[in-house]
Write a protein that binds this DNA or RNA. Structure first.
Length: 900
RNA sequence: GCGCGCUUAGCUCAGUUGGUUAGAGCAUCUCGUUUACACCGAGAGGGUCGGGGGUUCGAAUCCCUCAGCGCGCACCA
């Protein structure tokens, strides 16, 4: 074995071994099913650090559960990411000089370009997932746009259409002019900007002034809404006012004054100009009014190119911004403007195309979220709520738990504000709507079909498929079950655990819940873990455009995948962002190397002593042996608990602390000189093997590598996770072993400390005198006997102690360095080398501290209500502490006296 | 505007239902080539737990309030 671990040599080979072993495929495993669906990365490029972190989290969980004896499925896949991918490829094509790819290439050719880009990107991504060590079942690899998934998409569409949950309607939608496509409410990004709000009247004799940031849309106004409690305006409610030639457009407006409770009387003029065609809120007002029998018109004045249309009269063909300026100028000159103020406003932009989104009325396809599902008497909204609130159909086994729980509130909040989901997109890359329109002018009926249609089933006329495609989240929503066969759904669905970033809460998590509860009457997953975002040391997001992007594969190549994995999850906690920086990677690499060297030491030792499968003789165990066995037992319990509550970072931190501090720095050192060699070797090997197992989910490559160097014929990936009980059985000698070993540890540290403080030369051998007269005892064994029996530890653990003397006189030897641990006086004779003044100052300072401590403690214990109210256990504990401090202070005082 | 987080050592973070003199890693300083590891070992220094108030025998922990940062939603007339 090399002095330093070289990750490069083996990673690919080991991954191949795992893959060949079949353990990635749950069909080869026994036990309780445990399933994780990988959030399919978009085929828009390469994996970034966030993906790498996700892969690490999922793989830790998958490997851990596999080692716990479960039948683990980690299913890999990719997402065609409709709009995102098309937008990306179009951008590339434009950069290549094709000005308008859709026009110049046409549907088929453009799709061919996108397909080839996507396939390329896909193969890169899959390679990267392998490189991360992800133990996923490649035989079940899925793609949201492959044949199997497309078939299910069509089936679900048809089912929802039949149930009346998917409908074609003329409603307002978000329209990206640049992308020439709709987008859903969730695909909007709000950007803050400074805008102007104008307060004016439509015309001189209009009774009410209104305010707006978009005067150009006022050409489409058909109502003014006021609060019915508003005394200023109540008299106008129900009246219709005509505005002749609004803003010189040549267009006459008919404005009806309507009552709306939601109008804030104190905001602006207390009246809202209602533009149903260009505002979601106004459109809803109109629907409300209509259902109350109050007809209001819908007048569209902006077209799909972001220009004013023929309904804008004189302003036709101006882009909205120009029209706005002209109308404002006209209003000003006509003396209608009452106020002009600057405000900060949020404008909705398209998250993929980046342009400001216009709200337009269009005929599109929608999912009705507030409509009762036939046979269920519940709406989709209600299903989605139920699944998280009480459990689907009020079954507790069908309840989704979100970690951290605060995201549940955010989710409910979102559901409350949910509108019908526009699912048709005018991009070409995606699942084409399974809708056919009869071309016979006498028929013209639309048909929804799960499979391709050729002829109109009614009139036999030719049919033409709808050119639109589905919102990408429609297919992603099916992911937890579209990836499984019917039979597999019985085993792996609902899936056990799902992890994702908080930005996908609505896009994806909510849609999966919607689809799964509706289609299968089952929740998609039992537990969702929401992770935060990785940021750099300054707290900035990593992004290509900011130029601070880090390629995880570069780090993997330089430091090894194990170090990358450890550094990615170090310091993370559920739902919170975390920082990722160089020191973390190095620290992780160092730990891997430490593990390598611990193993190297033990493996070399094995070769010398050639021990084979010997039984541990409990009678030959030392205090140190019992101590480490107890520690290991506790550790296993703690980390299982941490992993199962998704505290991945805490678990590995605890492992690291144990491995480095307890095992390497103390136990391995002790093993070098204690005489029960056989027992030591057995314990060292047992611990090493189990340490490799508990680290394996985090750092699979190095652990598997060492495992094979240990000469194991099995693969570590398929080993059983260690159990607390097996250590507990060995270690349960006495509970106080741990405390007594810790006392020896403290004494050793105190001796090292005295050496350092008194500048005793490194190589110089010393004698130590212990006075145990007033010391605090642990258990039945006297400290005197304990020190006697553990002389070996004290001498050999980097203390340079050559001789030990134990006295019980309470007399102070002179010319000594001195300290007190648990009442044990420790003296190191210094033969005139001692700096008396320094010793005095140190002792005085410590006495000072102790005095304050003791007086605090005394006043607490003298406080009657403390003694009365605090639990007896706490009081006893405090009394013990006080006693210890008192012993220490009196010993120090005596020592100080001696110094004078 | 409504709701939710966060604020602990120079940095990154722990701190379980309130109960040791608030912990770790990195960084800093001192010492050390002791043959598993200098990607190492031994030690040290460093915090009035964001400010203020309250509850309690006892508060980093619970409540109120203020401030800073972040997130979600709504508004954006």
């Amino acid at each position: 074995m090399e002095k330093q671990y070289d990750p490069q040599e083996n990673e690919d080979r080991i991954y191949q071994k795992w893959e060949d072993s079949g353990f990635f495929n749950p069909d080869n495993l026994e036990g309780e099913p445990y399933s994780i669906m990988m959030p399919p990365p978009n085929v828009t490029g390469v994996l970034h650090l966030g993906h790498a972190m996700e892969n690490t989290l999922m793989d830790i969980m998958a490997r851990y559960q596999r080692m716990q004896g479960k039948k683990v499925l980690l299913l890999p896949g990719t997402d065609h990411a409709a709009v995102a991918t098309q937008a990306k490829v179009e951008k590339i094509l434009i950069e290549r000089g094709i000005k308008d790819p859709r026009k110049e290439l046409g549907r088929e050719k453009l799709l061919e370009e996108i397909r080839s880009f996507a396939e390329n990107s896909k193969s890169t991504i899959l390679q990267q997932i392998r490189k991360m060590g992800t133990s996923c079942d490649w035989s079940r690899l899925a793609y949201t746009f492959d044949e199997t998934r497309s078939k299910i998409v069509n089936e679900v569409f048809q089912k929802m259409y039949t149930d009346g949950l998917i409908y074609r309607g003329h409603r307002v939608v978000n329209w990206s002019v640049k992308g020439q496509s709709t987008c859903s409410d969730d695909e909007l990004e709000y950007k803050e900007r400074i805008g102007k709000i104008y307060t004016f009247k439509y015309c001189q004799n209009f009774p009410i002034a209104i305010a707006t940031t978009r005067p150009e849309t006022k050409l489409g106004d058909t109502a003014v809404a006021v609060n019915p409690k508003d005394e200023r305006y109540v008299k106008y409610i129900g009246q219709t006012f005509e505005v002749h030639d609004f803003a010189g457009s040549g267009i006459d407006l008919k404005i009806k004054i309507i009552a709306e409770d939601s109008v804030d009387m104190n905001f602006g003029t207390g009246a809202v100009g209602v533009t149903p065609a260009h505002s979601m809120v106004d459109f809803e007002m109109r629907e409300k009014q209509i259902s109350a029998g109050n007809e209001i018109k819908l007048i569209q004045v902006i077209d799909q190119n972001g220009k004013m249309n023929e309904k804008a009269g004189q302003y036709q063909n101006f882009v909205v911004k120009e029209a706005r300026e002209k109308i404002v100028a006209w209003i000003k000159s006509a003396g209608l403007l009452e106020k002009e103020e600057e405000i900060t406003q949020n404008v909705s932009t398209s998250d993929r195309f980046g342009d400001i989104v216009e709200v337009l009325p269009m005929t599109q396809w929608f999912v009705a979220v507030n409509k009762k599902i036939p046979g269920k008497n519940k709406t989709l909204k209600e299903l989605m709520k139920e699944a998280v609130e009480t459990g689907l159909n009020n079954e507790s086994t069908q309840k989704i738990t979100i970690t951290p729980s605060r995201f549940e509130k955010i989710y409910f909040n979102w559901i409350d504000n949910l509108r019908d989901w526009c699912i048709s997109r005018q991009v070409w890359w995606g699942h084409r709507l399974p809708v056919w329109y009869c071309q016979n002018p006498d028929c013209q009926k639309p048909f929804v079909s799960g499979s391709d249609m050729e002829k109109c089933p009614l009139c036999g006329g030719t049919v033409k498929q709808d050119p639109d495609t589905l919102d990408t989240w429609f297919s992603s929503g099916l992911w937890t079950f579209s990836t499984l066969t019917e039979k597999e759904r019985g085993i792996f669905h609902p899936t056990s655990w799902m992890q994702m970033g908080s930005e996908l809460l609505f896009f994806w998590m909510a849609r999966m819940i919607l689809m799964s509860t509706y289609c299968l009457n089952e929740i998609p997953f039992k537990n969702v873990y929401i992770h935060g975002m990785l940021r750099n040391e300054k707290g900035d997001k990593f992004s290509k455009s900011a130029g601070n992007n880090i390629d995880p594969i570069d780090i993997s190549k330089k430091y090894g995948t194990d170090a990358l994995r450890l550094s990615l999850i170090s310091g993370i906690s559920p739902g919170s962002d975390s920082k990722f920086y160089q020191e973390k990677i190095e620290s992780a690499r160092n730990f891997i190397n430490k593990l390598w060297n611990i193993s190297r030491y033990i493996i070399n030792k094995n070769q010398e002593s050639k021990i084979i499968n010997q039984e541990l003789n409990k009678n030959k165990l030392t205090l140190a042996d019992f101590w480490i066995l107890q520690k290991m037992s506790n550790l296993i319990e703690e980390i299982i608990n941490e992993i199962e509550t998704y505290n991945f970072s805490l678990a590995i931190e605890k492992i690291r602390e144990f491995v480095w501090n307890d095992f390497a720095d103390w136990y391995v050192e002790v093993s070098k000189f204690e005489n029960n060699k056989t027992e030591k070797n057995i314990i060292l090997n047992m611990l090493l093997e189990d340490i490799l197992k508990i680290i394996h989910p985090y750092a699979p490559f190095v652990t598997e590598n060492i495992w094979s160097i240990l000469g194991k014929e099995t693969l570590l990936i398929s080993e059983k996770y260690p159990e607390k009980e097996s250590y507990w059985k060995l270690a349960s000698a006495t509970q106080t072993d741990e405390m007594r070993f810790d006392l020896i540890k403290e004494i050793i540290i105190a001796i090292r400390n005295l050496r350092s403080e008194n500048k005793i030369e490194p190589g110089k051998k010393i004698k130590v005198v212990f006075d145990t007269k007033n010391s605090v005892e642990f258990g039945l064994i006297k400290n005197k006997d304990l020190l006697n029996s553990q002389e070996n530890l004290i001498k050999n653990l980097r203390t340079g102690v050559e001789k030990i003397e134990i006295i019980e006189t309470g007399e102070k030897p002179s010319d000594c360095a001195h300290t007190v641990v648990a009442g044990v006086n420790i003296f190191i004779p210094l033969e005139g080398l001692i700096d008396i003044q320094k010793e005095k100052t140190a002792a005085e300072k410590e006495i000072e501290n102790l005095k304050k401590y003791i007086s605090d403690m005394e006043s607490r214990l003298n406080n009657k209500s403390f003694v009365q109210k605090a639990p007896a256990q706490i009081v006893a504990q405090e009394q013990k502490k006080l006693k210890e401090a008192q012993i220490k202070i009196s010993e120090l005082e005596k020592y100080l006296e001696k110094l004078k």
